[in-house]
Design a protein around this nucleic acid. Structure first.
Length: 438
RNA sequence: GUGGCCGUAGCUCAGUUGGUCAGAGCGCCGGGAUGUGGCCCCGGAGGUCGCGGGUUCGAACCCCGUCGGUCACCCCA
């Protein structure tokens, strides 16, 4: 990029998604929507910003996301607001506010904002696809949600992904475990990295997912939460595991999986792409949050959900060389060298008939217009010169594949173009061509 | 927030130890007799070398600052 110093540009950490890349996004959204709606989830839109307390109470002030990464601001009325850093808390807030009938299953596609230093796969505005299911404490709901996330990732062709699974216990068994872990680690404080020696008191769980070798060593033999779950949590977790196995969803138990938000309880999970060697290889994650609704002022209501990062999912697709999506092509491109009346009328007519049609502007030469027709990817070019005008015809010239050009009466143009279309779609036009999408 | 690397035409990049160093490929625009794209040929537009300051007789090349990008840490999608 060699912009002038004063040329406008997207803010640091944000990015534009322009055509044709945007067709991948569209296709992804459509695939995702089809899968989760098939499972009874309905689309929910909530505001892009919320009162700060929605996130503070739900995610927890101890997390980095809330502590130092939120886009907070005070509006003109003195309200403290924040751009959403994730998707769960806003949806739970909406639940608390509207109290829809249970079970309530919703999905969303939304931007999320975090003030972090940008790097590969990490943006200040990124986008997430996700679902939330409120009401049932049933472990089969966990199975449903995890398998939906797994299915969403696999539906775009990803295969090199690992599902990591853990249980964080509940308010009964976790506190006891945390104390035990703290005591265990306290004896080995010197073996920990500086940072976690510090954080030992405030949040010993986080030491478990430290990547530094010394911390890994110190925690290898540490007591594991899954081994000391209370009976109900253990039974829940066992049922979840059995369900995933029954559905053929492969997973790997990971006792170090301690997700960053305070609201998680019991089942937590994360998907990592093996194709991404960057530090940001997590393409999605989620978990159960049985206390969150109460934290936001609602009645005790269990819940579980997941979020998938769109940018990271697409990066993983690039790395695995899957989910290449062809942008939709035009059915016809009108080339008119007689002043444009025919281009104007014929193009309009084709569009009215549900066909994809475009044309050249500014009265360019035939060569120029044909080049544009070629670049557009249109199936046929419709040529109009003085002779065609006088005979009220249009030359239909195939641009792709074989076939000779032939004159067609203007009155029959729509049918001629429809017949020349590469795909036999409905009157609304062909669907986007998808490659590598099962 | 901390650190490493980078910043030359729309894109990908060349630019020797500072002195025709402002270039190439692709893309874009135009042309290749008599209305017809893709291949090929010819021509053209387009950059105050991110920005500001400094060193020097002279800087795209050196120094400082700044902005942006990128990678890593932290954390996460």
């Amino acid at each position: 990029m060699t912009d002038d110093a004063n040329a406008a540009r997207a803010p640091s950490g944000t990015h534009d998604v322009l055509w044709p890349e945007s067709t991948r996004w569209e296709t992804l959204l459509a695939l995702f929507a089809a899968q989760v709606e098939r499972a009874g989830y309905g689309l929910a839109h909530t505001p892009i910003f919320e009162e700060v307390k929605v996130f503070r109470r739900g995610i927890g002030t101890g997390s980095d996301v809330v502590g130092k990464e939120m886009y907070e601001f005070e509006d003109r009325g003195g309200r403290m607001l924040a751009l959403r850093p994730e998707g769960t808390a806003p949806l739970v807030r909406a639940f608390v506010q509207h109290r829809p009938a249970l079970p309530w299953k919703a999905w969303y596609a939304t931007p999320a904002f975090r003030y972090e230093r940008p790097q590969a796969g990490r943006y200040r505005q990124h986008h997430q696809l996700g679902v939330e299911a409120l009401g049932p404490a049933d472990p089969d709901l966990d199975v449903e949600v995890v398998s939906l996330a797994d299915g969403a990732l696999r539906s775009v062709g990803l295969t090199d992904i690992v599902l990591k699974l853990n249980s964080m216990g509940d308010a009964l068994c976790r506190p006891a475990y945390v104390e035990r872990l703290r005591a265990y680690l306290a004896e080995r404080r010197d073996a920990l990295c500086d940072e976690h020696a510090q954080r030992l008191e405030s949040n010993p769980l986080r030491v478990l997912d430290c990547k530094r070798p010394q911390c890994r060593q110190a925690t290898d033999a540490a007591p594991r939460l899954v081994e000391v779950l209370c009976d109900p949590c253990a039974a829940h977790f066992a049922r979840v595991r059995r369900g995933l196995e029954a559905l053929g969803v492969p997973y790997r138990l990971d006792h170090r999986l301690v997700r960053g938000f305070d609201y998680y309880s019991r089942t937590t999970f994360e998907f990592a792409s093996g194709a991404l060697d960057a530090a940001q290889n997590g393409v999605g994650g989620g978990g159960r949050y049985d206390g969150l609704v109460e934290m936001l002022g609602g009645p005790p209501t269990p819940g579980i959900g997941f979020g998938i990062g769109i940018e990271r999912l697409l990066l993983a697709c690039d790395a695995e060389q899957v989910f290449a999506v062809d942008p939709p092509r035009l059915d016809a491109f009108v080339v008119d060298v007689t002043g444009g009346d025919v281009a104007r009328d014929v193009t309009w007519r084709l569009r009215q008939a549900g066909l994809r049609a475009d044309r050249a502007f500014d009265g360019r030469s035939m060569k120029s217009q044909l080049k544009a027709a070629d670049r557009s990817g249109a199936a046929v070019a419709l040529l109009v010169g003085p002779q065609e005008v006088s005979t009220r015809t249009v030359i239909v010239k195939p641009l792709r594949g074989g076939g000779d050009q032939r004159p067609v009466p203007v009155a029959e143009v729509v049918e001629a173009v429809r017949a020349a279309r590469p795909t036999a779609g409905g009157p609304e036009g062909p669907p986007p061509t998808r490659r590598d999408v099962p």
